[in-house]
Design a binder for these strands. Structure first.
Length: 269
DNA sequence: AGTCACCTGATT
DNA sequence: AATCAGGTGACT
């Protein structure tokens, strides 16, 4: 279920629960989870190192370990990463886990098994993450950032927004919702959007993500406030055939880049 | 720039 | 049985 907001929530949770803990053993159900790296290599290097910090870059979770080593966890479509009191009690869909020296377990639960865990030297990881685009919730993300990246691009703007080398962390939902709020047709070439619309799009991206981070963090924290967290329902995503809350037209679903795109033909030009 | 493979589970 | 899924990388 993860886009940037859920990944951010996972990082917050890990920071509270796992910071300072020491990794004893790494286990993997299938070599797929670390491929093309060897499970044995990861296990050997990770053993005995403590968790110094947890960072997020785009949709990547970066776990800094002692001795200048960093684990990169990508949740892909269905991954989740969380601490439990006893790793022996784990769902069958847990594809890998870390035994912590205090007896707890750090589980990588991933029903579809598309997620990845990779190991890097500290200086390698920064170079790797430099391939990603701007962090949309940082001050370096400005309307001009979008304008310059979009200049001359004939890519449909929805795919442009989901290109991680442009903006890091936008996914299928946030891209669709931001485009709806900015009143932009997802099929429109990125380079042909007016400066004024780009300005609006920038603002809506930030607004959508800020709110989703807030909701995701609350939902992960206390189930009691789950309703509150859900109080910002999707305007278009997963609403094919329903009426647009703004203009009443029927929300459509089309295919872009092999994924579903939802939009309102009335509001989005 | 578009299509497909990677996986499994839920829904139609 | 077929389609869909909040992602990405490797192919045409």
């Amino acid at each position: 279920m993860p886009e940037l907001p859920e990944v951010e929530a996972v990082c917050l949770r890990l920071r509270r629960q796992a910071k300072g803990a020491k990794v004893a053993v790494f286990h993997a159900q299938r070599p797929n989870v670390t491929a093309p790296q060897y499970v044995e290599m990861v296990a050997t290097v990770v053993a005995g190192r403590s968790i110094e910090g947890v960072r997020r870059r785009g949709k990547n979770i970066l776990i800094d370990l002692s001795g200048n080593v960093t684990l990169r966890v990508h949740l892909r479509m269905t991954g989740d990463l969380y601490v439990v009191a006893d790793a022996r009690l784990r769902p069958v869909t847990v594809r890998a886990w870390f035994s912590l020296s205090d007896g707890r377990g750090l589980l990588f639960n991933d029903p579809r098994a598309l997620g990845k865990i990779h190991l890097y030297a500290r200086e390698e990881i920064d170079a790797e993450m430099a391939k990603l685009g701007v962090e949309p919730l940082s001050r370096t993300f400005r309307p001009q950032t979008l304008r310059e990246a979009a200049r001359g691009s004939r890519m449909p703007v929805k795919l442009f927004l989901m290109d991680q080398s442009v903006v890091a962390g936008l996914g299928n939902i946030s891209a669709a919702e931001a485009l709806f709020r900015a009143g932009i047709d997802p099929r429109k070439p990125a380079g042909r959007i007016s400066p004024g619309r780009i300005l609006r799009l920038h603002a809506e991206i930030v607004r959508v993500l800020r709110h989703a981070v807030q909701s995701a963090s609350i939902a992960y924290k206390s189930p009691r406030r789950f309703e509150e967290a859900e109080s910002f329902p999707n305007a278009v995503y997963d609403r094919e055939g329903e009426e647009c809350g703004n203009c009443g037209r029927i929300i459509r679903r089309i295919q872009q880049g092999g994924r579903s795109t939802y939009f309102c033909p009335g509001c989005q030009k």
